[in-house]
Design a protein around this nucleic acid. Structure first.
Length: 873
RNA sequence: GGGAGUAUAGCUCAGCUGGUUCAGAGCAUCUGCCUUACAAGCAGAGGGUCCGGGGUUCGAAUCCCUGUGCUCCCACCA
């Protein structure tokens, strides 16, 4: 058993991960055991590991490792997401650096480069996860655009289309002029912005004067088709039906009336621009107004109106302000704060834009998804997210699933030359359908495939099914074995994008929930509570942290400060704590491994007691830890183990059984100690896989093919709660003696003697432990108080540490008086209850009894302290 | 504007069905210790108006109302 003196996580971690991999421990195939399955929330293929991933994946690994040790066939499936928008943006940026514009490439050329880029740089994050110790089944690594997943997406699209759930429609979409694609509502983030409110004059036709309209977007006047006032607005009632001229443009438009207009806002007059505002669009639809789209897809002005052609929307805004002022059509400009919608990916302001998109009807899909969570077929942890989920589903809108990008799953729709389209999984099928529709003479070359790709989430919503090929091969052995999966660990910000939609897909395609529990992590923030972001530079590089503290240390750090659903304030100091814990385990092992054993040696009483006690404690701890896991209180579970190892095992147990320097230990105690160590390592393994494996291998004197990660998790058992409670009296007694030692400045090596007036609360059976742990020469049973001693009371038992002339009478009296005052106050509060008729009659019997017990204890203590003070005086 | 959550030690948080494991844990702090596994440690100690104000109850950190602060989600008045 050779072990290094120093705990250096860096040295042990790499070797064990390779070992686990080489032994194939992470790989799962269906067998007779029950399955435990987690599918990873697929990180962006272009992503690199950040603290959010660390938290998320650490939790997954803890659950998977624990399940594996509990006898489940654990399967954690990793993979990456193609992430249409952000990946395409990165590839475009890369090409730009090389001096290549996307527009100069064909779709095929672009995709070739994108794939090349993905092969070269993609999936770094999966490599990084290995450093963390993630026990993913790498043989199953999937990609949302690999063969099986792509085929699944296409099949589902065709199926939903044939079911009548997918349709095309002109809709006002959130247009991202930078990415030149539509975004779903969920991909738009609103940001409070300092902008200006412009008051524009619309000259009244055939009369004098003008109407003033307040707008934040003067450039959209190019698309104005009406003004609108509230029908009840006395100021403008006479104007309804009159014509006014759009400033600069000169177009004649009518003044109409609608309740939608808020009389209080601005001037009470709204300009209606149906092409560029969602509300205006609705008014336009209602009154059948013309729609004038004034922008090109890239946000520059088109030639519809003939003004500002080719200029960017923001340049136009500046320019138009001057032009309006010059023309005397600008009443005034006010500072104004409003919310501007930004693209989550490109961060440019969203342009509401009318366009032809593909939609997925949500109503029928939403229904079972709602029920599953409402009726707790699927459990959310914490439960508060059920509200958010329900609210969203109740107000769900159809899902815009098309994106004007190249990187993604291309929509399998083909347009016929004479109009109309067909939807099919393959070109052959498309052609067949097209011929049915448009005549036998049609050739493939006559058909034009839709240019758009599907929203990324349209592939990830199938993830729990497509990972087991359940779409292309329904009912195959894998999907039957692994589905539904057990736990999903994810962040609450994708509850709509992803979680809700996976549930929908699960019921639609497997007629079964995709997972049993959803554990929502919090957002990782810095210690000042700020969100971690690149721009703030407050996000530590997880790999650097692992280099510095070891993966085990960082894992402990992540887990200690995280409770489900609460944001976590990450502080690097936590990593230090985690590393220190690893060090503690390491050193405890060094102590034990250094002991000499003499089999002939008789076991000492204190060792026998220690073993009984710790065995008992271990059983109770296991029960508590099981309960924590059942409630997904993972940080509580870890904290319990932390204290069990550090305080109870290292601080108490090992000190109790530790032989004198250089002396050997009896075989029974040594074996028991090794047994405890083994169990503790196993309990710790899911949290700290590396250091536990290293030490377990030393402990077990390694045999190839063995590993703690496939060993059995210790199981809870019956325990004696009374004995454990009684042992706490021992600890209190020892602490009291140590306290006296400290106050009197008595060195540890100097033994003390202890006198006790025995009563029921004196744990006499544990006396050998008290003697050893407090450094006593012995314990003497007495019936009289010792005035020349430092005294203390544990529960009701009076103890005396004889001090000879070291006793400081003044200080002793002061201490006792303080305690007396406290106890008298305490007794008074107890008596207040007991003297209250309504308490005696109203409270449960048990509560009343404990109050009487309190009273008796307090009275006994008070009497003892009074006597003692008298004796000292 | 609508909804939800949260407020407990310097920090991060537990505290489940109101009542002796009710005021807790870890970290940090302070005081002793180079005690023969560990100073990344050991021993001990201090630290709280349970956000403010009402109410229910024999009894409230816990339940109700109200105010305040913070966080998040949804909506987006030009």
């Amino acid at each position: 058993m050779n072990i290094q003196d120093k705990y250096t996580p860096q040295e042990i971690e790499s070797k064990w991960y390779e070992y686990w991999l080489s032994q194939g421990y992470f790989h799962s195939v269906p067998d007779g055991r029950p399955a435990y399955t987690i599918v990873i929330p697929p990180p962006n293929v272009t992503g690199i590991l950040h603290m959010g991933h660390m938290l998320n994946n650490t939790i997954q690994d803890v659950l998977v490792r624990r399940a594996r040790m509990k006898g489940f066939n654990a399967c954690w499936v990793p993979g990456t997401d193609h992430a249409s928008i952000s990946t395409e943006a990165k590839v475009v940026a890369m090409l730009k650096e090389q001096g290549i514009e996307k527009s100069s490439l064909t779709r095929e050329e672009f995709l070739a480069r994108a794939w090349e880029w993905k092969e070269k740089y993609g999936g770094i994050i999966l490599k990084q996860l290995r450093r963390l110790g993630a026990s993913c089944d790498w043989e199953r690594t999937a990609f949302t655009m690999d063969e099986v997943r792509s085929a699944s997406v296409i099949r589902v699209f065709v199926d939903l289309y044939n079911k009548g759930l997918i349709y095309r429609g002109v809709r006002m979409v959130n247009w991202d002029p930078a990415a030149q694609t539509a975004l779903s509502d969920e991909e738009v983030v609103f940001c409070e912005t300092q902008s200006k409110l412009y008051y524009l004059r619309y000259m009244i036709e055939g009369g004098d004067g003008y109407m003033v309209v307040a707008t934040t977007r003067p450039e959209t006047i190019l698309g104005d088709v009406a003004l609108c006032v509230n029908p009840n607005d006395q100021r403008y009632k006479h104007m309804i039906g009159h014509a006014v001229r759009v400033p600069l443009v000169g177009r004649s438009i009518l003044v109409i009336a609608d309740d939608y207009v808020d009389m209080e806002f601005g001037t009470g007059v709204l300009k209606v621009t149906p092409a560029h505002d969602i509300n205006d669009y609705m008014i336009g639809e209602k009154y059948n107004l013309e729609v004038i789209d004034i922008f090109n897809p890239d946000g520059t002005v088109n030639d519809k109106v003939g003004l500002y052609v080719g200029m960017d929307r923001f340049t136009v805004r500046e320019k138009i302000e001057g032009d309006l002022r010059e023309a005397g059509l600008l009443e005034k400009v006010e500072a104004y704060t409003n919310n501007v919608g930004l693209s989550e990916r490109t961060h440019v302001p969203i342009e509401p834009k009318l366009s032809m998109q593909w939609f997925l009807r949500m109503d029928t899909l939403a229904k079972p998804a709602m029920e599953a969570v409402e009726e707790e077929m699927i459990r959310f942890v914490p439960a508060k997210f059920r509200n958010t989920y329900r609210h969203w589903l109740e107000n769900i809108k159809d899902w815009c699933i098309s994106r004007q990008l190249w990187w993604g799953h291309r929509i399998p729709a083909w347009y016929l030359p004479e109009g109309g389209f067909v939807v099919a999984e393959t070109e052959e099928e498309a052609l067949r359908l097209a011929r049915e529709k448009g005549g036998e003479t049609l050739q493939m070359s006559d058909l034009r495939r839709d240019d758009d790709v599907l929203d990324t989430w349209f592939s990830s919503w199938l993830w729990p099914i497509s990972l087991f090929d359940g779409i292309m091969h329904p009912g195959n052995p894998e999907i039957r074995y692994y589905y539904p999966t057990d736990d999903l660990i994810t962040a609450p910000d994708i509850i709509f994008f992803w979680v809700a939609r996976m549930i929908m897909a699960g019921y639609e395609y497997e007629h079964e929930k995709p997972f049993g529990n959803v554990y929502f992590t919090g957002i990782v923030r810095d210690k000042l509570g700020r969100k971690m972001s690149k721009s703030l530079g407050n996000s530590p590089d997880p790999i650097e942290l692992i280099d510095k503290y070891g993966a085990d240390g960082v894992r402990v750090a992540m887990l200690l400060c995280s409770t489900a659903g609460n944001d976590i304030m990450f502080d690097e100091a936590m990593c230090e704590q985690g590393r220190n814990f690893g060090n503690k385990i390491w050193n405890a092992f060094r102590l034990v491994s250094g002991w000499q054993v003499d089999e002939r040696l008789q076991q000492s009483d204190h060792s026998r007691i220690a073993i009984e006690w710790f065995d008992n404690l271990l059983r109770r701890s296991l029960e508590e830890i099981d309960a924590d896991f059942a409630a997904y209180r993972i940080s509580d579970a870890l904290m319990k183990i932390y204290r069990l190892f550090w305080d109870e095992f290292s601080g108490w147990y090992l000190e109790m059984v530790k032989p004198a320097y250089g002396a050997p230990m009896d075989g029974t105690t040594f074996a028991a100690t090794k047994g405890f160590f083994d169990k503790l390592l196993r309990i710790l393994h899911p949290f700290m896989p590396f250091v536990t494996e290293e030490l377990w291998q030393h402990l077990a004197e390694r045999i190839d093919g063995q590993s703690i990660m496939i060993s059995d998790m210790p199981v809870a058992g019956e325990y004696d709660a009374a004995a454990l409670a009684r042992f706490e009296l021992v600890k209190e007694t020892v602490a009291a003696i140590r306290n006296i030692r400290q106050q009197k400045g008595i060195p540890n090596r100097e033994t003390l003697s202890l006198k006790v007036i025995r009563d029921d609360n004196y744990p006499e059976e544990y006396a050998p432990v008290i003697i050893k742990m407090a450094g006593l020469s012995g314990i003497e049973h007495v019936t009289e108080k010792d005035p020349a001693a430092s005294a203390f009371i544990v529960k009701t038992t009076q103890y005396f540490v004889p001090m000879g002339d070291m006793i400081d009478v003044e200080a002793e009296i002061k201490k006792l008086s303080d305690e007396l005052a406290y106890l008298e106050g305490f007794l008074a509060s107890v008596m207040k209850k007991l003297n209250n008729e309504r308490f005696i009659s109203g409270a449960p019997q048990k509560v009343v009894e404990t109050e009487y017990a309190k009273k008796n204890d307090a009275e006994a203590k008070i009497a003892a302290i009074r006597e003692r003070i008298a004796a000292l005086k």
